[in-house]
Simulated scan of single mutants.
Amino acid sequence: MNYTLNQLQIFLKVAQSQSITKAAEELHLTQPAVSIQLKNFQSHFDIPLTEAIGRKIYITDFGKEIAEAAAAIIEQAYAINHKTAAFRGELTGKLKIAVVSTGKYVMPYFLADFLRQNPAVELVMDVTNKREVIRSLEANEVDFSLVSVLPPKLAIEKLDLLNNKLYLVGHTARQFHGQTPAAIFRELPLIFREAGSGTRQTMTEFLDRNEIPHIKKMELTSNEAVKQALIAEMGYSIMPLIGLKNELFNNDLQIIPVKGLPITTMWSLIWMKGKKHSPVAAAYLAHLEAKKDEIASDKFGWYDGY
């Protein structure tokens, strides 16, 4: 059989996500490229690996066994690479981080230099909602988590990276001058993130704390979805500034002045108190402690203008 390690990786990702679209997104490939490699991989076997019903793909029992074998082979391949790098005296191993969804606008900038300096380090980063981020931290599945709202009942240590500022945001078609928060929120349809989102929690606490009546228009499960809804003039939302750079610069969205905003929290890298870090995790933490202020100034200088 002449299948490649790349084909094994693609099939494993398809099996894990049960979606060619999601596999393509996670592998940073096009859907046609994933489909072609999946077809080429299937050509090595007489028994079907997948089954398509309607628009959904399912993994057959045989496919599940091949996926398990693929995972073991890929793990061994990584082990070989790690051993080779370690023999050369390079830092090697996995760095595992769970990031709340809006954190995808923050975390890459605090990772890039470290990964360039340590090419043998393998990054495993899960971008999900706050609830799942905290669960994976408690379960010791990750080295670190990036959050903007600290978990109140968890014994953690933290390293603060960057201020997180949340504003009321909407389309530029309408201008606002001098209205009170109560007046604005009474007439504006508000778009919320889903339950379990840190942004949702912060937004709801602000409304409740100020006893502001509001219209709940809809609930969406990602900041990207909220942004597109705002651009389409479907409503307004309280959103983190960090993900709005292009939309503000292009005049697609505006910040609506409201007393009591912005809400300011902190993007913090957190880990369980007393956790014994791996050499890779310890090296990364040392890198951040030395470079975080420089990274924040260099990559987020635009942030101070708001």
Rank of each mutant, 00 (worst) to 15 (best):
M1V: 13
N2M: 04
N2S: 11
T4K: 01
N6M: 11
Q9R: 15
Q18P: 09
T21S: 13
A23V: 08
E25G: 03
E25K: 08
L27A: 06
H28S: 12
V34L: 00
Q37T: 02
F41S: 05
Q42P: 09
E51H: 08
I53L: 13
G54D: 05
I57C: 11
T60P: 09
D61Q: 14
F62T: 09
F62M: 07
A67M: 07
A67P: 03
E68A: 08
A71S: 09
I74E: 07
I80S: 01
K83L: 07
A85T: 04
A86T: 05
R88Q: 15
K94P: 02
K96H: 01
A98M: 00
S101R: 12
S101G: 13
S101H: 13
V106G: 12
P108K: 10
P108T: 11
A112L: 09
N118D: 08
P119T: 11
E122D: 11
V127E: 02
N129S: 08
R131S: 14
E132S: 12
E132A: 13
I134H: 02
R135P: 05
R135D: 00
A139Y: 04
L146S: 04
S148M: 13
L150W: 02
I156K: 05
I156C: 09
K158I: 02
L161R: 04
N164S: 10
K165I: 07
L166G: 02
G170C: 01
T172R: 07
T172C: 13
R174C: 00
Q179D: 13
P181F: 05
R186S: 15
L188Q: 14
P189Q: 12
L190Y: 00
F192D: 00
F192R: 01
A195H: 14
S197I: 05
G198K: 01
M203Q: 11
F206E: 04
E211V: 02
E211G: 01
P213I: 08
I215G: 04
K216E: 15
K216R: 14
L220T: 09
N223P: 10
Q228H: 15
A232K: 03
M239L: 14
E247A: 12
N250M: 12
D252R: 11
I255P: 00
I255N: 09
P257T: 10
K259P: 03
K259N: 15
K259V: 12
I263W: 06
K275H: 00
H277Q: 10
A281E: 01
A286F: 05
A286S: 13
I295N: 11
K299Q: 15
Y303Q: 07
Y306G: 13
